[in-house]
Computed example of a mutant assay.
Amino acid sequence: MSGSNTTDFINPSTFILLGIPGPEVAHVWIAIPFCTMYTIAVLGNFTILFVVKREQSLHGPMYYFLCMLAVTDLVLSTSILPKTLSIFWFNSREIDFSACLTQMYFLHCFTGMESGIFVAMAFDRYVAICDPLRHSTILTNHVVAKIGLAVVLRGGIFVLLYPFLASQWPYCRTNIIPHTYCEHIAVVKQACADIRVSIYYGVFLIVSGMGLDMFFITVSYIQILRAIFSLPTKDARLKTFETCISHLCAILAFYIPALFSFLTQRFGHNVPQHFHVLMANLYLLVPPMLNPIIYGVRTKQIWDRLLRLITHKGT
C-alpha cells in the first residue's frame, strides 16, 4: 500500500506558470503597462543611485537608506518581471524547479528587506526630528552599515525556510501554477501533503516581519507627531512634517497593496483568481516604480542635484 502511494509522488523537474489565469488573450496587452512600470522603476532607481553617488552633500543616513531601498526595488522587480514578460509575449511558461525555488527566495527575501528599510528610514526621521542635535552622532556611517547588515540578514535568513520546505514536499497533483511567478503559497498548494507547516510559517513571517515593522513605524511616527505639535509656530510644524511626506507616501505605496494581496489570498475565497494574481504583481511593481518618483520629486536636495547634473551636461 505504501509502495503504491510513493510511486504516485512526482516531483517535477519543471513547473508551468499560467500567467494571469482567465484573460489569457489579453496577456500581450497587459504586458505593456507591466513593462512600462518596470522601465520606470529601473531608470528611476538607477538615477537615485547615480545622483547620490555623484553628490558628496547627499552622503548621509537618509540617502544611504534611500540607496538601499533603490537596490532592493531593482532586485525585487527584476526577480519577477523578465519571466512574466516571457510568459505574456513568448508563451514561455516553463520554469525549472530549482529556478522556481530561487525566484521564491529572492522575491520574499527582498520584500522583507524593503519592509526593514522602511523601519530604518522611520528611525532616521525620528532621530532627525526628536533629537536633531545628536542625529549625526547617533546615526554614524558605522551605525547605518550595521542597520543595513541587520536588515539584509533578517530578510535573507528567515526566508530560507520557504524554499527549503517547498523542496521537501511531494508534488503529485499537478505541475501547473496559476500565477506569473513562484510565489510561496501558490507553489506549495500544488503539493499532495499536509502543508500546514509552510502555511503557518508564512503567517508567522508576515506577523513577525511586516507586522512588527508596521508597529515600530507607527510608534516612531507617534513620537514624531508629538515632537512636531510641540513646535511653537505653524510654519515650523509644517516645514518639519514635510520632511516625512516622502517616507509616508512610500510606506503607503508598499504596505497597502502588500496587505491587500495577503488578505485576499488567504481570506478572499470569493475573489477571482486573476484578481489575486494581478494584485500580487502590482504590489511588487508599483512600489519600485513610485519610490524614485516620490523621493525624486518630494526631496528638494535630490531634485536640485538632478537638475544641476542635467543642465551641466546640456551646457
Rank of each mutant, 00 (worst) to 15 (best):
T264V: 08
L309N: 10
F262S: 02
F90S: 09
V151W: 10
F229W: 10
A122F: 01
F215P: 01
G148Y: 05
G209I: 03
M279S: 12
Y181W: 02
K300Y: 05
T243I: 07
T311N: 06
C67Y: 01
A250M: 01
I129H: 03
A193Y: 12
F164V: 14
G155P: 09
A150C: 12
I256W: 00
S115F: 11
Q56R: 13
V127W: 14
E55Q: 15
P292V: 00
T72D: 03
N281D: 05
I16P: 01
Q273F: 11
D131T: 12
V197R: 02
A258D: 00
G268W: 11
I185Y: 08
V25Q: 08
D8T: 14
T72I: 03
V75P: 11
L69Y: 02
T36V: 10
Y283M: 00
L259N: 04
F123P: 15
T6K: 06
K53Q: 12
L205F: 08
T137K: 11
K189V: 04
E114A: 03
F275W: 15
D194Y: 02
V152L: 13
I185F: 10
I224D: 14
W169C: 13
F260C: 07
Q265G: 10
N281H: 00
S261W: 00
H269T: 07
A26M: 11
